[in-house]
Amino acid sequence: MAEFIHLKIKRQNGPNESPRWEEFKVPYKPNMNVVSVLMEIRKNPVNAQGQKTTPVTWDCSCLEEVCGACTMIINGNVRQACSALIDKMPSQVITLEPLSKFPVIRDLKVDRSVLFEHLKKVKAWINIDGTFDLGPGPRVPEKERRWMYEISRCMTCGCCYEACPNFNARSSFIGPAPLAQVLRFNNHPTGAMDKEARLETIMGDGGITDCGNAQNCIEACPKKIPLTTAIAKLNRDTTLYSIGRWFNR
């Protein structure tokens, strides 16, 4: 292994500033990940040319690939910085870029609040609040529970948004992750009470029909959530629901 870890980082001072590339050389230590390398730069913010610079800004929290906060583009692939181990990286130079589909706040830190907005839009929750005790909820079949658990592992990291060709500034597509959540909450016996409202939402502008079946989402998802199966299942649900709605009106 080389003595130094050579990094090329796409930096940006603020939301409306233009990006620039800056290179760094961080002394190699075994078992480093991208987060610990960035921490080294923060300790000693000097670039590869030996000039003093500002420390690189990034986001991270859990450091075990369950929160999704440190998601960035590493060597051209969208993934989490915490699980990007230096010893397992093949390339000589490691390039770090912020997510391209979300507004950059500074350097590698982006504003992913659109994900939260979309989750709110599809009512990605179960209504259990009331003025009286609702009692225990219905039992969930084991098969359903497993399926819902698969989808519940989504950490809204934004990898599927980043890889999706139909999610961009031109389109209003809601994106793969919230669609999977629709299925997850529609499958829940109590959540199913809001099933129609969720289906109506994803049948609107930028809804499920805006999926172009490039299926990059399932490839990019670090949790391997069955996003394409969820979308196809929702395609069936919305198709049948729309036919039923037309004949019931």
């Binding site: 029909t209 999926c211 079946n213 069955p226 394409t228 199966t229 979308i231 196809a232 299942k233 929702l234 395609n235 069936r236 649900d237 919305t238 198709t239 049948l240």
Partner: peptide, 9 residues
């Protein structure tokens, strides 16, 4: 896929 005919991988 779009009409929900083929669902699983």
């Amino acid at each position: 896929i779009s009409w929900g005919i083929t669902i699983g991988p």
